[in-house]
Design a protein around this nucleic acid. Structure first.
Lengths: 149, 149
DNA sequence: CCCATATTCCCCACTTTTCCCCACACGGCA
DNA sequence: TGCCGTGTGGGGAAAAGTGGGGAATATGGG
């Protein structure tokens, strides 16, 4: 099980390539074969899953029935944004234009480690998102990290 | 086991040929011998199965009973539209006119990877289909893309 | 039965994109 | 100071996407 963490500011070169921080790479299982699955995240960001972590997601939708209309919609919606990406010899990923465009990414990115996945943000959008949160870190923590009775 | 994914915009040339995206081809088993079975899909789109995946579909309908009228109807409908297609040397498929017409395909297509099959849509029809669904990407992703507790 | 037209399939050609490799600057560390 | 590991940039070869010509095959009407 992966456990990514940390926050990194990186640049996007003019070929659309994004380097994955060395500290993050050290946490990627060798099973992932330098392959990541990039897809849309919740807010306006991209999710990056090492191949072995993505396999768990895929297993959970494989059981759905192709003959059920709702299941079909479900699988299409989820998979249509997902793309395989391989690290090049400099440990960078070439991310397709449409995904970069979705996340509003241009020449700078913020890379966040979030346990089993990695998130990629346009720094300005991330800041705006953070400023829009009604709660503070402290008030949320109080609710989330409450000891189970 | 195939695991197609992603969404690709491609053009149909004036001979009715459709290229299969390289990223999709990389996920096709060599067992498929560059051969695909094209048939009518659910909703107004075409289903494309690599030969090896189609064999599994056939196995599953082999178990249906010839004496059950509903089974007979289902099997006939599925099989009568199914046709073999081989990739040409440029990795394109020539899809019969009547199937293209069924899917309302003209000069542009959307190709979706959906686990064991590939779907081919008229982009406008796909958009209309998606707009008619009550759920969104977020509601779908919420179910699947969350950490295992 | 034969010919004219259409369709299918197999090449070849061009443009764009992607990928692979090399180069360099910077910083930590022995 | 010299040596890695790391982040950044770019050139060039290879692959991918697109289009079209022309021979073999099929279709249909006289």
């Amino acid at each position: 099980m992966s456990s990514f963490k940390g926050r990194y500011s990186y640049s996007v070169d003019n070929k659309g390539r994004i380097a994955i921080p060395a500290k993050v790479r050290k946490n990627v299982s060798p099973d992932a074969n330098d392959t990541f699955i990039v897809t849309r995240g919740y807010e306006q960001c991209l999710f990056l899953y090492p191949q072995d972590e993505w396999a768990k997601v895929e297993d959970s939708i494989r059981g759905l029935s192709p003959s059920n209309p709702q299941h079909r919609f479900f699988v299409r919606t989820l998979l249509q944004w997902a793309i395989d990406c391989q690290l090049d010899s400099q440990a960078r990923l070439s991310i397709p234009q449409d995904l970069l465009k979705f996340a509003g990414i241009e020449d700078e990115v913020l890379i966040l480690g979030v346990l089993e996945r990695i998130e990629i943000w346009n720094p300005k959008i991330y800041e705006a998102y953070m400023n829009n949160q009604p709660a503070t870190y402290e008030t949320v923590a109080e609710v989330v990290l409450k000891p189970t009775p």
